[in-house]
């Protein structure tokens, strides 16, 4: 294809991606270098017969004018990145100096908003991804062994938790595990504690979110693996069987190696999607115990009346760096493959 033709064909999609994906990243970066204006205060002195009184009030008009004039706010350099809500180097240093044990130090660091969110996001990603991979493969093998008549309906039932939007899916689960819901009420009955709530402790909240994450993404890995199983060469399986391989050995030595490309694809997709975990925290109203990186950005932007663009921008940049770390191995591998193909 000629360069010129290629250009015209790719123009609309490229324009859309540059304008609304690449530039917003730049814009978020620029915003992260600024902080919103402080309110303009006026000190007025009123003198009466009993001496003078100084009152401080907010000059709304002047504040508004300042914000109109420079909507970005004041230039702050990398200040936002270093403050308590983000990388908080000085707080971390202080915690290091003041805490006796490593556990103390961790406790203090985890109380800092950014590190707390990072820890939850990484834990969620690191727990959900492998469980979903293994269970997905197990269920795919199980469904593959079902009679043909039941395969279609099994896939039909499985698709729903994946296709329903996270906000709605997690609400459906939340209503069940909430104190008055069927599961929540049963748990209270079993433990004979009418005040037991899954939202009360950090560990239970995290577990609840992770269970939701598995429920939501399992269908994806299951279906991809199931489709992959249909292409496992029958001859190889038969040969292995003749050679005396047990069913288990056939899975480990024939099926899994055949699925390796699929496994890396599913892992990549799961990592990308789990890293942006956000909606379930809103639905479960779990923010007291679990906050993800996406959630703290959302929260900064929601700050009613006075969104913290600078803070949200800084967290966004740090999140993007995190995504870049996740993607680097994949990109490097694809690049190697591409070069090997000899372009």
């Amino acid at each position: 294809m000629k360069h010129r033709t290629f250009f015209w064909f790719i123009l609309p999609t490229l324009t859309a991606m540059i304008l609304f994906i690449a530039l917003p990243i730049v814009s978020a970066f620029v915003q992260s270098l600024f902080v919103q204006h402080e309110q303009v205060l006026v000190v007025s002195k009123s003198c009466g017969p009993f001496g003078c009184n100084e009152t401080t009030s907010i000059d709304l008009e002047a504040t508004e004018k300042l914000r109109q004039g420079e909507p970005l706010g004041k230039f702050n350099g990398l200040g936002t990145y270093l403050n308590r809500s983000h990388l908080a180097f000085s707080e971390v240093g202080k915690a290091w100096a003041n805490s006796e044990t490593l556990t103390d130090f961790w406790d203090e660091v985890l109380n800092l908003p950014f590190y707390g969110a990072l820890t939850f996001t990484l834990t969620y990603t690191a727990v959900v991804t492998p469980i979903v991979l293994i269970l997905g493969l197990a269920i795919a093998i199980g469904v593959n062994g079902l009679p043909n008549l039941m395969k279609g309906p099994s896939i039909f039932v499985s698709l729903l938790p994946f296709l329903v939007t996270p906000l709605v899916g997690s609400l459906i689960l939340f209503w069940m595990v909430d104190g008055d819901g069927i599961i929540g009420a049963t748990i209270q009955l079993v433990f004979n504690d009418p005040n037991l709530s899954l939202k009360a402790s950090t560990a239970l909240t995290w577990t609840m979110l992770i269970v939701y994450g598995i429920w939501h993404t399992l269908p994806f890995s299951f279906i991809v693996f199931y489709a992959g199983l249909q292409t496992v060469p029958f001859d190889t399986l038969e040969a292995a069987q003749i050679d005396g391989a047990t069913k288990w050995q056939r899975i480990i030595y024939v099926v899994v190696p055949h699925l390796v490309p699929l496994i890396s694809f599913v892992t990549l997709m799961l990592l990308m999607d789990n890293f942006r975990v956000f909606e379930p925290i809103v639905s479960f109203s779990a923010e007291a115990h679990a906050r993800s990186l996406s959630w703290i950005i959302f929260n900064d932007l929601r700050e009613s009346g006075n969104p913290l663009y600078g803070s949200a921008g800084a967290t966004s940049m740090l999140t993007i760096i995190g995504v870049a770390f996740l993607l680097t191995p994949v990109l490097l591998r694809t690049w190697r493959d591409f070069k090997l193909k000899g372009h």
Binding site: F6, I10, L14, M17, F20, I21, A22, L23, P24, I25, V26, S27, A28, Q31, P71, L72, M272, F275, R276, F278, L293, S294, I297, F298, D300, L301, P307, Y309, A312, G313, T315, S316, T319, I320, V323, A324, L326, L327, V330, L331, T334, W335, F338, H343
Partner: peptide
């Protein structure tokens, strides 16, 4: 063409909320 596809993959990985924080202002 390869680079455009790679860029698309990277864009696909961006959490949507990070882009939204760039749009609002």
């Amino acid at each position: 063409a390869f680079w455009i596809l790679m860029a698309a993959l990277v864009f696909r990985a961006m959490p949507h909320i990070t882009l939204v924080s760039g749009y609002l202002l």
